[in-house]
Amino acid sequence: MTPKKPKSENSIVDVAKALGISPATVSRALNNNSRISEATRTRVKEKAAEMGYRHNSMASSLRNRRSNTIGLIVPRISMYFHAFFITSLQRQLQTAGYNLMICQSNDSVDVEKELANTLYSARVDALVVSLALYTEHIGHFDGFLRQGIPLVFYDRVPTLRTQAYVIKGDDYRGGLLAGNHLIQAGCKRVAYISGPLSCSIYQERTRGFIDSLTKYGVPFREEWTYYHELTVENAWSSLRRLFAGDVIPDGLFAANDTTAIAAVAFARERGIRIPEDLKIIGYSNDPRTAIITPAITSIEQYPNEMADKVAETLINALQHRGPSSSIVVGEPLVCPVDLVRRMTT
């Protein structure tokens, strides 16, 4: 059987013929132009819906050179920080008249490159990116900069200076707060489970943590330090090695909350008392840290506040074509963090 050819779609011209008015009037009515009466706008929209007319946003964006769409590349949508960030950013951008096209790299540099090319070809008006774990070179975003398309890196940002906007958390202070708190709580033998040092956030958290230990004269033990992707499986593997010897840690700084939660489960299985035998601090203040027993001390990153800064920067760049009042290209805007103390310390 020969497949049927797809039926051609009705156009503005077809709607205009059906109503006996000009295509220009139909176009203005569909775009809610105030020069067209409300009655005519209603009549046009009803007829367009009846005829199955669809607005060709791609053709419109080619004519206007604006798509009203902003691209977003995140490592993983499932991560607590990024999930909250996306919700807040999308709400603010929609209020300002922009759609958000959300993509995830799954922490793959190759996928990140493909997504950057796809979003560039899709003619997004701006791009927001939190880099994959192992992204060291950001040349795949150069096309946006060459064309003057606003580019914002947030949270996981380039480690070298860039001509893009950079908005990040104060990860150095987060590491410092974690180290200070563990030592002030009486810890003398502190372990550390970090993400890979190819990533800016783990570089900064590590630097702050080491500086805290140095300040208090507590040794930073390389043999009790692990750098890997912060999954539950990797956490258990590192914890087994940490607690395999005769001398074991009395404090643990986990560079994300998934690892801290795994540490609580590990301690329960091994009969390690928290906080008497082991004190634990996580990072991000994932809501799970407040409801687990015992509730976990963590570093609050304020994803909503970071989304506010990103939205402000984007809207200013797109609508006013000038620098934001709070951020300039190439100069990182650092968002605050705080320690939230709970029962694990």
Rank of each mutant, 00 (worst) to 15 (best):
S237V: 08
S238Q: 10
S238P: 01
S238G: 01
L239H: 07
R241H: 10
L242T: 01
L242K: 02
L242H: 08
L242F: 08
F243T: 00
A244N: 10
V247S: 11
V247M: 12
V247G: 00
P249Q: 07
P249L: 10
P249E: 06
P249M: 06
D250T: 07
D250N: 13
D250L: 06
D250F: 05
L252F: 13
L252N: 13
F253Y: 15
F253C: 13
F253G: 07
A255P: 01
D257C: 09
T258M: 09
T259W: 09
T259I: 13
T259Q: 09
A260E: 15
A260W: 07
I261W: 02
A262N: 02
A262C: 04
A263W: 08
A263L: 05
V264K: 13
F266E: 01
R268L: 06
E269R: 12
R270H: 14
G271R: 04
G271K: 03
G271M: 06
G271C: 06
I272Q: 10
I272V: 14
I274T: 11
E276F: 02
E276H: 12
E276I: 09
D277Y: 06
D277F: 03
L278T: 04
L278P: 09
L278K: 11
L278Q: 04
L278G: 06
K279V: 01
K279H: 02
K279L: 01
I280P: 09
I280Y: 12
G282M: 09
Y283I: 00
S284A: 15
S284N: 15
S284H: 13
N285K: 01
N285V: 00
P287Q: 11
A290S: 14
A290L: 05
A290M: 11
I291C: 09
I291S: 13
I291T: 13
I292C: 04
T293E: 15
A295Q: 05
I296Q: 02
I296D: 11
S298N: 11
S298A: 14
S298R: 04
I299M: 06
I299H: 05
I299P: 06
Y302H: 12
P303C: 03
E305Y: 13
E305S: 14
M306L: 15
A307K: 02
A307T: 12
D308S: 06
D308M: 05
D308V: 06
V310K: 03
V310S: 07
V310F: 07
A311N: 11
A311W: 10
A311Q: 05
E312H: 14
E312T: 14
E312W: 11
L314S: 10
I315R: 03
I315D: 01
N316H: 12
A317Q: 12
A317C: 05
